[in-house]
Design a binder for these strands. Structure first.
Lengths: 207, 207
DNA sequence: ACCAGACCTATCCTTTCGTATAGGAGCGGG
DNA sequence: CCCGCTCCTATACGAAAGGATAGGTCTGGT
């Protein structure tokens, strides 16, 4: 069996070492590992012959899925997958939409990892079933709840820590009206108060 | 060489598998691994003969360093170390103060990991020098403004969007006292209200 | 014309937050 | 020993937030 060539990027050296050791011990793959996105791009600049690229979602230079897009445009047609510790399944969907060949939460067992790598290197998309079967966004990111124009404006200011009065002034509204929108926002975002709403929006990367 | 007995707890199966595989492949240790704190406590209930216990900092049941304390009281004298992905070095200090034998950021190389485990199992405290040499909190933010222990506890709860009353209950304090800490926090973080304080802390990656 | 939905405002009321002021307990270093 | 620091508590008051109810306007679609 010819060994697969895997390019791995993760800022945790421990993760790099253990994953690459695992893949190589199985005689499954030859792993090249680096610690940030620029390093990946530099390598792809001269060598695009990898069977698979694994990208840590939280990593210097990644900036969400921006890094994925950069990789894909640096090496069109290459198979790139996202690797992440905390796995909000909305991100998985977005990653696939952005052209990833797979999405690997670090909660995955080592055995599954090997399988996943094999799949993806063969051009087969891989996402853990658990992520796909769970409802789209039950809890953390009710972004499916699309917000109205006003609500978005209010939410943006909420994320700057402004008071109702300040928001009212900026939007030329009455304070009561702002309260109304804040209340609606809290309901839609499943937050118990403005602080949680702001935190949730921030976490979701909305603002 | 008699193999060391290591007890590992991490909710990421991948981390469990890779770390244990690594330690065992080197003939260094026999690893028992579980996925949460209750499981650890249950095991220690009948078997305290481990040379080292590794605890993921972010893990079901851990609740910060509470889990560490539970482990230490469940098996007095046992050597327990904290394992964490994101490593604010303040936590390292707190962990050591709380009685940990070591503190391992996951950014550690596998080789260093082996060494660290060897050290700690021998009763030698281990903390990466990088964490100790770096100034306490040189962070991006006015986190140079050292926060006291209490303030940190309050801030963490602020970042969960809790009300003063709820925070008071969790910390067994009076609501007024919490208000005091919140006010101090706002000053130190240069925030105008609790929401901004929470956002700033979040942004700085503190919680 | 009618209805539905988003949007804005008002009044009223309770709870929470934020701030100020004034202490006291405990601990470490000069 | 006193000083400074952290920590906890108390009382009090105005400001802000949160919730309920009851309207109103304007829009687009049927």
């Amino acid at each position: 069996m010819s060994a697969l060539r895997v390019l791995l990027a993760d800022d945790h050296e421990m993760v790099r070492d253990t994953i690459s050791a695992f893949l190589e011990n199985q005689g499954e793959a030859a792993v090249t590992s680096v610690s940030d996105l620029p390093a990946i791009l530099k390598i792809l600049d001269t060598d695009t012959g990898f069977d698979l690229v694994l990208l840590d979602y939280n990593m210097p230079g990644m900036n969400g899925l921006e890094g994925l897009k950069k990789v894909l445009s640096a090496a069109p047609g290459i198979r790139a997958a996202i690797l992440t510790g905390s796995a909000p399944n909305r991100v998985a969907q977005e990653a696939m939409d952005a052209g990833a060949i797979g999405f690997l939460p670090k909660t995955l067992s080592a055995k599954s990892l090997i399988n996943a790598v094999r799949f993806m290197a063969a051009g087969e998309p891989y996402v853990p079933v658990s992520l796909m079967t769970e409802d789209p966004e039950p809890e953390t990111h009710p972004l499916g709840q699309q917000l109205s124009r006003r609500e978005n404006q209010v939410l943006e200011r909420l994320c700057r820590g402004l008071s109702n009065k300040e928001i009212a002034r900026e939007l030329e509204l009455q304070e009561v009206t702002v309260k109304l929108h804040v209340r609606t926002l809290c309901r839609k975002l499943d937050a118990r108060n403005r602080t949680q709403a702001a935190l949730i929006a921030k976490e979701a990367g909305l603002y």
